[in-house]
Amino acid sequence: MKRKYHQRTGQICLLLLAATLCWGCATPQETANLQQSINILFDRVQKLENQVQGMQGTEQKADLYARMEELQVKIGSLTGQLEEQQRQISRLGTAAPAAAPPSSSAAPGPSYAAAPSAATEPAATPKIVIKEEKNPEKAMYDNALQLYQQGKFLEARKEAKNFVDKYPKSDLADNALFLIGEAYYSEKSYKEAIESYQQLLDRYPKGNKVPSALLKQAGSFQKLGDATAARILYERIAESYPGTPQAQLAAKELKQLP
């Protein structure tokens, strides 16, 4: 199990490196390749999250959970860079001057003005196409998640809120509230993140996102310099959810608090 875990971690790191190396390219194709790398990376994180439940060692679970949290932050950073690159490509495409028609004295040859190519036309901004889903509920949640992956945190929050309003009894409703908190957390809006995680705790106290929401809420208080509130929440996680990755991480954070 440990060997497989290191292999998976190594594969994820390679994907991150590949995505980072692609940066600096300014062609639509390479931008699309970067987006594909991010999607693959996110899929790997999702699969690892599912496999955590089947692991036996609590310490290994906690370590893997922490690594997944770090990867999610990196995904948000990469997707934010991708969005900026897409805007640059779009600006370059629309600002490109039209080629002057060849003069009568010019030597015969192919004319780029007469036969526009992909290099002279405005570059198309690559986008992730949301596949049509038979289940509109899941499609709506996936859209909110996708916006978050792209670093569009405001749009992600709006879509996730609309999802909760429309499907309050959905199995994904607590995930949508957690996504709202994560979007605020990614923007370092820790007070708003705390409020969003609290909504999840109040509305879905038996949901599977409760331990994670408590952990991120404690982390938000810690970021704000409120060590007392953070300590209370870390202790609550350790006592209420013993043996879970969240409890293991809470115990580690408690040791670092003043």
Rank of each mutant, 00 (worst) to 15 (best):
L214C: 03
Y234L: 08
G80L: 02
E30S: 07
L154I: 08
L17I: 06
C25K: 13
L17G: 05
E239K: 12
T27L: 02
Y234H: 05
A227W: 09
Q248T: 13
T58P: 01
D63H: 09
L233N: 05
R3I: 10
G24P: 03
E155P: 03
P168Y: 04
S90M: 09
A156D: 02
T27R: 06
P258N: 04
Q51L: 08
E49Q: 12
D63I: 07
E137V: 13
A62V: 11
I232R: 15
A98D: 14
G54T: 08
A193R: 09
Q246M: 11
A107C: 02
N162A: 04
K223D: 06
Y148M: 03
L154N: 10
I12E: 05
A114N: 10
Y184W: 12
Q81M: 11
A26R: 15
T31G: 03
K206T: 11
I75L: 11
F42V: 14
K158G: 00
I180L: 01
V73T: 12
A26D: 14
N175K: 11
Q60G: 05
T228A: 10
Q198R: 15
A123K: 11
L145T: 03
A247E: 06
V129K: 12
Y112N: 11
Q72A: 03
K209I: 01
E187P: 05
E195K: 11
I237T: 09
A250P: 00
R91H: 14
Q86H: 07
L214W: 10
Y241V: 07
S111T: 12
L233T: 13
P168I: 07
A251N: 13
Q86K: 15
Q11Y: 07
K255W: 01
A123L: 08
K216Q: 14
E132V: 05
I128G: 02
T228W: 00
F153M: 10
A156P: 10
K4M: 06
Y234T: 06
A251C: 02
Q150E: 15
S105C: 05
N208V: 06
E235S: 04
A227S: 14
A250Q: 05
A173N: 08
K134Q: 13
K127Q: 15
R87M: 12
P242K: 03
P205W: 01
I237K: 06
L15W: 05
A124W: 10
L34K: 08
Y190A: 03
